[in-house]
């Protein structure tokens, strides 16, 4: 059998470099948020009270659990527990879906109240509210988009582990998929207090 060349550390480093670009992307958005919040403190405070803190908290905990399950799937595959690893990847994808369902109801409730980008109701409220909800929908929407991509990535990981393309001594791809998922969690850790918990 010929030895296939593999560079796990290089692979991981590539993943981290990609994660850095994501951090800079969201970092820029957080700067935008900080400036507009500084300009419109009252409007941001009042507008954030429209957001549903219990749903936000539940979604935060769902993402944290999913981060733990994907980390455990890496542990499981290293211990040659293929079934457990598959189960944990599947659990992560299901938790991601639950997060999106909650998001759907959360956004749906906003839409029912006439709060969405460009709505007449929002225009009447004033500039600060337009900015708050514009940033809210854009940043949580971009984050939700990352969740969907993460579900696709982890779906591939599930198939690879199932087909033994990833095994106990060749699991870097699963770890990279996990890194992406943790990034999604990391971004939400900051989105949650900045939008839901404005004092």
């Amino acid at each position: 059998m010929s030895q296939v060349h593999r560079d796990d550390i290089g692979s991981k480093m590539g993943m981290w470099l990609f994660i850095f670009t994501e951090l800079l992307l969201f970092g820029g958005l957080f700067i935008t948020y900080a400036v507009y919040r500084y300009l419109h403190p009252e409007a941001f405070h009042l507008a954030s009270q429209e957001l549903d803190v219990p749903i936000g908290t539940i979604n935060t905990i769902i993402l944290l659990i999913s981060s733990a399950t994907i980390a455990m799937s890496v542990t499981a595959i290293q211990q040659k527990k293929k079934k457990l690893s598959l189960g944990l990847i599947a659990a992560t994808i299901i938790l991601a879906a639950v997060f999106l369902v909650n998001k759907y109801f959360e956004w749906g409730a906003k839409f029912d109240h006439g709060i969405f980008p460009g709505s007449e109701y929002l225009d009447q409220l004033g500039y600060g509210d337009v900015l708050f909800f514009g940033l809210y929908f854009f940043m949580t929407g971009l984050h939700a988009f990352h969740i969907i991509i993460g579900m696709v990535v982890l779906g591939f990981m599930y198939v690879y582990v199932k087909n033994d393309r990833l095994t106990h001594d060749n699991f870097q791809l699963l770890e990279n998929g996990g890194l992406y998922w943790h990034l999604v969690d990391l971004i939400w850790i900051f989105l949650f207090p900045l939008f839901y918990l404005i004092a």
Binding site: S67, A68, A71, E175, G178, L179, H182, D185, L186, I189, F190
Partner: peptide, 10 residues
């Protein structure tokens, strides 16, 4: 995020 970076992200 420090916990996530150090432990979860290895």
């Amino acid at each position: 995020s420090t916990f996530v970076l150090l432990i979860f992200m290895h």
